[in-house]
Write a protein that binds this DNA or RNA. Sequence first.
DNA 1: AATGAAAACTAATCAGC
DNA 2: GCTGATTAGTTTTCATT
Lengths: 158, 158
Amino acid sequence: MDDVDRKIIQVLREAGRTSYVALGKEVGLSSPAVHERVNKLEAQGVITGYHASVDPTAIGLGVTALVGIYTGGSGDESVLLEELRKMPEIEDCMYVAGDESYFVKIRVTDMLALERLLLAIGELKGVTRTRTTIAISTKWEGRAGGKSGLDADVDDSE
Amino acid sequence: MDDVDRKIIQVLREAGRTSYVALGKEVGLSSPAVHERVNKLEAQGVITGYHASVDPTAIGLGVTALVGIYTGGSGDESVLLEELRKMPEIEDCMYVAGDESYFVKIRVTDMLALERLLLAIGELKGVTRTRTTIAISTKWEGRAGGKSGLDADVDDSE
DNA sequence: AATGAAAACTAATCAGC
DNA sequence: GCTGATTAGTTTTCATT
């Protein structure tokens, strides 16, 4: 992981379909050279995949909500997580330190679907309550990160 | 927007670098036909971009936090939003209905950087307080959405 | 670990349906 | 709006340094 790798990552985070030829020009390497580096980054698990970003409303997902899940008592946490994983409406899921145990981002078609999903989550074993925040407007999402991967304070080995 | 478009979207959300040849086989169309459809989806703003997913810790972003921002009083909301936009550590930003006004996801190198950023957010004009939840473990993130885009209750025109 | 050239494949364009 | 063919460009392999 050197500065060239970080530059490659930066470019691919912003434009995931950049050709290896173009990527090579950006970082000053030949196409086979960048390709080999990208393969290694993928194999190491640094690059975990490539995804098209889609306007949720265009595919009928008009409602975005952030749900904090409070747990307690009887339930087995790993079973709860499995149940959450089965719910495709849950796009993001984090185990958190704070008032809640889990924090999830969900997308559904409409308020009725939201109501149903919140009821379903609330009835899972171990869930004591939920706390829902509804997104009125998404200003931006998944912006290519903070330091752009550059000037990172990262281990330079391997 | 028909079922073929939805299938294309589904595939590209999961594998953003799928070739048009492979995509054509998935949906039962020739390569030029899918290419034309993808171009239209991009032009319509349904597909908004392609991005590599990166393991944040691999690029030195070890801390993920969810921050609710409470506002009130004097500040101009649009100025506040501009200031937030200038902070590259903020990956997601939503205007929400709930206890908070904004809800943001931030990624930073370490706790010191988190402290600095929270102080900076807290000092923005119009911000009355923040409420931070720290992610201990990200179970999943950006999972290709709920209904997979299929069987959507969507307008079939255009 | 990178290069330059070659082979295989894909993207992009276009006439025709 | 799709197909099939064509051309241009890219990915991938490989011998070489």
